[in-house]
Amino acid sequence: MKNTVKVQRAIKNIGQSELAEKLGVSRQTIHAIETGKFVPSTLLALKLARVFEMPVEQIFELEEGD
């Protein structure tokens, strides 16, 4: 699964730590999501969408084989 968390974070000018704090997760979790290693739950994805003020589909995208 691809995501644009890093890009959206840059647009909003938010650091990993700040975003992590807003979502109630650790900074390493944000890093793991951005690098595509960890796929977040629906709950966390929706929280991300709320922070970035956009639909989840614009942040996460299915890849071939998913």
């Binding site: 992590a20 109630g24 997760v25 650790s26 390493q28 979790t29 793991a32 960890f38 977040p40 739950s41 966390l44």
Partner: peptide, 11 residues
């Protein structure tokens, strides 16, 4: 538990 025990930690 960890200090921040989020879903990644649980996995």
């Amino acid at each position: 538990k960890e200090k921040i025990d989020d879903e990644r930690v649980q996995l």
